[in-house]
């Protein structure tokens, strides 16, 4: 008997006993020890396990073998399409932005970055920033997400944040640049920021308590006030003031690696006023679901479902 055959039979013996529920805790330890001996043992055991699970799925009447060959080319093609779709959902399209950036955060991971000139950058969830920083230049590029800047005073060297062709130049200040859904927002909490939507136009001055929104395509600039609770994330919390539930869930979802499915349409517009710590988005979802009589299901690493 060859070595491979011996390994295959040992693996079959172990899995037979596992299927029959005949493994004592001591047996399980012996099995684990045998598996740890060699990668070949693991592979042989995985092969037998696959056969065992194939067996469980096989037609109940073993006397009538199922025919395969004619059907199989048909479902090969059909099987691929939904598979690719799913992969696209899980695989973030942000990989290239992360690669271009010097600093980035994933979902739920906030980050503070101290720059050589003493300025401080705060990155919100799922944000990427490139730092083409040189001794004589203070330029930062926001590729995606939300960035808060606390600028160290140095009038000789303007501090600028670039975002998809929009430029925000600080004049001694505290401000936030955010890029979402085709719109770039520059909000100022302290001092003044000069915003240019493109290379040609005159800068728009944005003062503390104001913000501007620039359309990424048309480059149109729209002024707006800055609500008092804005940029709560820079203080480590998520704050909502009478915002619709579905929107609140969407905002919390930005801090989770999982996809979130909202399946409680009758509750979508219920106003929510609440403040959650930003580092526990899962607890925030659970609290929201409970207070609204909804259920929250979690598929580890994959999905949260909020439903009636």
């Amino acid at each position: 008997m060859t070595d491979t055959q011996t390994i295959a039979e040992t693996a079959a013996r172990w899995h037979a006993r596992a299927m029959l529920g005949a493994l004592s805790p001591a047996d399980e330890q012996r099995l684990d020890a045998w598996l740890a001996e060699s990668m070949r043992h693991r592979l042989a055991y995985a092969d037998v396990a696959a056969a065992g699970y194939a067996l469980q799925q096989s037609a109940p009447s073993s006397a009538i073998p199922r025919r395969v060959a004619p059907r199989w080319p048909v479902w090969t093609g059909a099987a691929l399409a939904p598979l690719l779709l799913l992969v696209a959902v899980i695989w973030t399209p942000h990989a290239w932005q992360d690669w271009r950036s010097n600093v980035h955060t994933t979902a739920g991971a906030l980050r503070v970055e101290h720059l050589p000139d003493g300025s401080i950058l705060q990155l919100d969830t799922d944000t990427a920033v490139a730092l083409p920083f040189a001794p004589d230049r203070r330029d930062v590029e926001l590729l995606r997400g939300d960035l808060a800047v606390e600028v160290a005073k140095d009038p000789a060297h303007p501090f600028r944040v670039h975002c998809a062709g929009v430029e925000a130049q600080a004049i001694g200040t505290h401000f936030v640049v955010a890029r979402h859904a085709g719109e770039i927002e520059v909000g100022v909490t302290e001092g003044i920021v000069a915003v240019r939507a493109d290379d040609h136009s005159e800068p728009t001055l944005v003062h503390a308590g104001e913000r501007v929104l620039v359309d990424e395509r048309s480059r149109a600039i729209r002024r707006a006030t800055l609500p008092a609770a804005s940029y709560a994330w820079t203080r480590g919390v998520l704050s909502f003031d009478r915002e619709p539930l579905q929107q609140v869930v969407a905002e919390i979802a930005r801090y989770l690696p999982e996809h979130v499915v909202f399946r409680a349409s009758t509750h979508a517009n219920v106003p929510v006023t609440a403040t959650f710590p930003i580092d526990k988005p899962d607890a925030a979802l659970l609290a929201l679901a409970k207070t609204h009589g909804l259920t929250l299901r979690h598929l580890p690493n994959l999905l949260y479902v909020v439903q009636d």
């Binding site: 067996l55 037609a59 073993s62 073998p65 199922r66 199989w72 090969t76 099987a79």
Partner: peptide, 25 residues
């Protein structure tokens, strides 16, 4: 395609079962 692979293996196993002795089956 993992889905097709599983279906193919289930079919292979179903066929192979028929070839086993009655007691093993």
């Amino acid at each position: 395609d993992q889905i097709a692979a599983v279906q193919q293996e289930v079919a292979l196993v179903s066929n192979a079962i028929a070839a086993l002795p009655a007691r093993a089956r």
